[in-house]
Design a protein around this nucleic acid. Structure first.
Lengths: 224, 224, 224, 224
DNA sequence: AATGAATGAGATTTCATTCAT
DNA sequence: GATGAATGAAATCTCATTCAT
């Protein structure tokens, strides 16, 4: 007991922090340069360790990417799922919460670049494509579909086709995230977009369009 | 037709066709696998020539990509520019023509994958980013802006902010093109989208939204 | 026609010679240092080409080893098979021919080191083990078995168990070959063996032992 | 038994047993996979300690191999030497004892794989080759030579060349041991040998051949 | 003009060894 | 003594580009 002081020994503390440091470094670099174009050494270097250490924690670059995806997107989905299960109020409010959650916690953070990575590399790494579909796309689609169905079942929303609306809801959000991490991140001028503004407008319009006429908020009152 | 005289000897014709064959092969492969992940040999092989021949026509892979961009997108913009200059009718019709032209000639063809290439690689190849901005993005934005301004100036459109509307108009078209060439091209299920339907709806809604109230088509009648 | 002079162009000539040069270099090094311990660059360097060139001819180190085996042992077996099929005289003479052929063309040449390579690496490279068994061990065993059976069928040899005799016949030859390429190749003293003498004696004794008593050559007359 | 007192505390006993456990693990693995191909971690893991602990007992993998050799073969030679010094009966019996001792205690045990290790790696590790020659090959050869000379001096054996006979005596035993630990250990069929049978026959024949005619056992009576 | 053999820098991954705890 | 996290040299294999023919 006298050997283990209250403050964990330095080596120990670093070991526990390593996976997170590596995942953060990997996410940054994968988003910035792409998965293939990022060298293992770079990830290690940015995390402040040597090349070999990276392989102590993740057996290959592909597994590292999977861990990055799971860590950054998997958790958000789980969290969203919890919200949907417990929410009691009107579905429009719930949907707004989900979309804003995504934009705050994913679209507006480095995690929002993951879809760019996938879009670029999905055709060259089938195993990762499978993983992304099974662990992220499918659960996220299910979650949104469940929410829309809730609105329809409760008589709040028009009986629109669930799948198409799901795609229409998130396509512009994802497009903006893609843009932010590609052209939007280029120092060149003439490529910028007012992402937050576009997103806010989009969410407002979409929610309004979903509601049955009598429930629709009077135009001009809602949103900023 | 007048460009390829029937009388030219076969060898001659093939030699003149070389650059086009190389550009077509390069476009296909760059879209399919990405720019970095495509090997020079593959391009040459698909074009039916040897690796060395490729370098007779294009001094490097980067220059080849520039030529692909110019060939496939530069010409469309020039063509659109001609249409705008000569068009006489209502601006909504003109805008619809432009968007449908883009979807038919770009979004729905391999050329639509170029934006995916750029999105993936733009941060790793600054020189190409510059080229893309100067030769494609800027002219295209100018062209659309000019068209919108025409509608506003002629009293057809509401006086909306030109830049934001430009982005809003084309974002979903580009997003669908991105999708078609990444997830949409994966054999996996659960990743498909009804692109044409979404695009048609989007164009219809957008044009309707732009028009001043008195011109707007009565709600509920339009759309497929 | 005037383009292809009688003497093949230098580049062409070298290209045709490359595979053999690479196989020779690989055989030498694999025998000398073992398969795993030989670096690809070393093989290339000894063949006088660059690392990359090696991979132009053989897609991996394992495939290179397979080619070395096939080239050096497969051909000998085919040749031995031809001899057995056409031979007309007494089986003892045929067997002697086969054993001496092996010793001259394999045991006493670098090819004799291949069994050492296999012995060392067989448990770590199952695919190569399979290849060696199918392409070399099995055909060689069959060939010898066929020869022994011929002697028994013609009433020349005693009806001994074919398989055990096959092994007994070749074990010392192979052992000597193993020794030559391991301890026998060490500069250290005290590890040498008079291989040729042991082999000659062995062949003589074995053949004598196989013959039926009345056929046995009077001792002291035969062989050197 | 007298070496491991029952009273020693468990921790103490394990600590004292460490080197032996490490040597056993190393022997198994070196034989199974070869010296170079065996990772230090594997040895430590099989011995039930950590990688670091291995290096507390042996300063490098090479030194560990030397200890394995000394432990497993050096002791046998010392024991054989004791037998030869004290033996009183006929030399044929002594020689038979020695060969059967070797086969039982070495050839038929993991220690028999050491020669395979040496054969594979001897040319890459000159220092170990030297060690093996000085500590094993030379003493073993001397011991056998001394025994043969005893038989000749006492008029039991024919005056054959001592060195060649020594090699002829042990070559097949060693070959069988090599086989058992390489091809013989492969799961593949068609590579097996009836080692014990071949060895028994070999010993019988050899001893018979060494004896002067009048002492030779009548043919057909001997052996099992 | 056309070829394709050749190159070598560079990427991922492994592993003997060290050393702070 | 014991641990196992960390290191970095080294090995296999790839590919854009060159250049003799």
């Amino acid at each position: 007991m006298s050997k283990t002081p209250l403050a964990a020994p330095l080596r120990q503390r670093r070991k526990e922090a390593r996976p997170q440091e590596l995942l953060d470094a990997a996410l940054e670099l994968f988003v910035e340069k792409g998965f293939s174009a990022t060298r293992s050494d770079e990830v290690a270097e940015r995390a402040g360790v040597s090349k070999g250490t990276l392989y102590l924690y993740y057996p290959s670059k592909e597994e590292l990417l999977k861990a990055v995806i799971q860590q950054n997107l998997g958790q958000i989905i789980a969290q969203g799922s919890g919200i949907v299960d417990e929410f009691q109020g009107p579905t429009a409010e719930l949907l707004s919460m989900l979309m804003n959650l995504w934009w705050d916690r994913v679209g507006n953070t480095p995690a929002g670049g993951i879809h760019k990575i996938m879009m670029s590399e999905v055709r060259n790494f089938p195993e990762i494509a499978q993983f992304y579909r099974d662990e992220i796309i499918q659960p996220a689609t299910d979650l949104l579909g469940r929410t829309l169905q809730r609105g329809i079942d409760r008589g709040e929303f028009r009986a629109l086709p669930v799948v198409e609306v799901t795609q229409a809801l998130f396509a512009p959000l994802i497009f903006m995230a893609l843009h932010k991490h590609s052209f939007g991140a280029c120092p060149a001028e003439g490529l910028a977009m007012n992402c937050d503004g576009v997103i806010a407008t989009h969410i407002d319009l979409m929610l309004n369009g979903l509601l049955k006429q009598q429930d629709a908020a009077p135009k001009g009152k809602k949103n900023s």
